[in-house]
């Protein structure tokens, strides 16, 4: 009986692990690579707030998976396994990838195969993907200007300014972890709720645990390679970028749509680049994001449809 549940869930657990190992860099990358916070402390904060976000608000996005398409234990496994292959493969080749887009593509393909795909829900999700980096740009622009104006009106003595920024970077990282947990936990186990295999409560528990496992076991290398590339920013800008990313992702949690934290941070950094009149993000990176909107769900969908076809004979 337990094995009947565990074996399909293995796909989700693997996907959660991949998500955790990849997305930690977006949240505490700047803090760790600038030696503001120790790696161990960052990991502890990450898994704590990620789990909190998953428990308190992760259910909002789980319902979207239930309405996107119907699943069985087998198809849920196929969807998560396919998404995991896409995430793993693209990460291996150094191509930025969104777990949300991969799993949505896979789940939609299953829905198209079994005739249960809700294209209206899919349309809403795709629109939110486009607005993720765009929204992050706008939010970071507004935040930067507002905080800048506040600091100019009430300049802080240097020691307090430094301490406030230090704290701000850590607190925004915690909020980012919370937002990631609330928004992305459904990526790993939402399809199993749609399959009726587990309840939403168990889904967030297992999802949070698998993402945390990825953070603990495999995020370090990604943080030190990706984190530095994304954050050539001064401390104030880094603080605003992470906060804007967290707000963006959390907003989409309220809409019940899983989005990419990676694309949100790219948008936030680009927004700061606009204010400072510098190109904070390379053209290549922006092109990869746009291509990702199309290729990632297509790849996830293709693999899911292929496996589904092969298994059903």
């Amino acid at each position: 009986m337990l094995m009947d549940v565990l074996w399909p869930l293995s796909g989700g657990i693997l996907l959660g692990w991949a998500l955790g190992s990849n997305d930690a860099a977006n949240i505490f990358g700047t803090g760790i690579t600038t030696n503001l916070i120790r790696y161990r402390t960052a990991v502890l904060l990450l898994i704590t707030f990620l789990t909190l976000g998953a428990f308190l608000e992760g259910g909002k996005v789980v319902t979207t998976f239930q309405s996107l398409s119907s699943q069985t234990a087998l198809t849920a496994f196929i969807a998560t396994f396919s998404a995991g292959l896409v995430v793993g493969g693209m990460s291996r080749w150094g191509i930025p990838v969104s777990t949300s887009q991969a799993i949505i593509g896979a789940a939609t393909a299953i829905g198209l195969v079994n005739g249960s795909a809700n294209l209206k829900v899919l349309g809403k999700i795709v629109a939110c993907w486009v607005f993720t980096p765009v929204g992050a740009v706008l939010i970071s622009l507004v935040l930067y200007r507002a905080l800048d104006a506040l600091l100019r009106r009430h300049p802080l003595p240097f020691p307090i300014w430094s301490a406030v920024l230090k704290t701000g970077i850590v607190v925004s990282g915690c909020y980012g972890a919370y937002a990631l947990g609330s928004n992305n936990v459904a990526n790993t186990t939402g399809v199993f709720v749609a399959a009726g295999l587990i309840s939403a409560r168990w889904a967030v528990l297992i999802g949070a645990a698998s993402i945390s496992l990825g953070v603990i076991t495999y995020s370090k290398n990604v943080i030190y390679t990706v984190g530095k590339q994304i954050f050539p920013l001064d401390p104030f800008s880094a603080f605003v970028a992470v906060l804007a990313e967290a707000i963006t992702v959390h907003l989409f949690t309220q809409l019940g749509v899983p989005v990419s934290a990676s694309q949100a941070i790219v948008g936030a950094v680009a927004g700061i680049g606009i204010i400072k009149n510098v190109r904070a993000i390379q053209q290549k990176r922006l092109t990869q994001i746009v291509l990702g909107w199309v290729l990632t769900p297509l790849a996830g969908g293709f693999l899911a449809a292929l496996f589904s076809h092969l298994i059903s004979g």
Binding site: H154, P155, L156, P157, F158, P159, W161
Partner: peptide, 10 residues
């Protein structure tokens, strides 16, 4: 002024 000014006057 930098370290102790209540409103750091640049």
């Amino acid at each position: 002024e930098f370290l102790e000014g209540t409103r750091m006057d640049v």
